[in-house]
């Protein structure tokens, strides 16, 4: 039996009728055509499907669309206004080569968005633990960590760290 739900996605309310077994990630990608939220492992491991649900980062492959009824969702498409300035994290990823193939990037950025909302001055270790539920199969973690450090400095209004690539 279809269930009627109302979800606010990127500040736009949507009234949908969904099967209870519909996963949130499929609702986002297939019913709302917001394909920036990716499906990687489909087993709660990789974090590519990470979105914000009422401000908390969650893996949308392991939540039912009906569980989001009455809640607010932010996907990667909702972070910066169309044509407007990037968020500090998006800018950080751009400036620090924080993405290689880009597949993990939306999940990384949404996870880091909550991380920095809780703590805008994390240590490198806190960042690495903070993104421990997100896999980058290009193994580009060093630049991802740099990107998050850059964004945290920007959010605190402090001098921005160097964006020169490291050769190791």
């Amino acid at each position: 039996m279809l269930k009627k739900i109302t979800v606010t996605v990127n500040e736009t309310p949507h009234h949908l009728e969904v099967e209870p077994r519909l996963l949130l990630v499929h609702m986002i990608r297939e019913l709302l055509n917001l394909t920036g939220t990716h499906i990687g492992c489909d087993t709660t491991s990789c974090g590519a499907c990470t979105i914000l649900l009422n401000g908390k980062s969650v893996k949308s492959c392991t939540i039912l669309a009906v569980q989001a009824n009455g809640k607010s969702i932010t996907t990667i498409e909702g972070l910066a206004p169309e044509g407007g300035p990037l968020t500090p994290l998006q800018e950080g990823f751009k400036e620090n080569h924080g993405l290689h193939c880009g597949f993990c990037t939306p999940g990384m950025i949404l996870r880091a968005t909550e991380l920095l909302a809780r703590n805008n001055n994390p240590t490198e270790e806190e960042i690495r633990w903070g993104i421990s539920g997100n896999l980058c199969r290009c193994t580009g973690y060093n630049n991802i960590v740099k990107a998050i450090l850059y964004a945290s400095a920007k959010m605190r209004g402090e001098a921005l760290p160097s964006t020169e690539p490291e050769f190791v």
Partner: peptide, 11 residues
């Protein structure tokens, strides 16, 4: 800290 990962711990 050792249970699953941050996103899972949110739920």
């Amino acid at each position: 800290k050792l249970i699953a990962d941050p996103q899972v711990r949110n739920v």
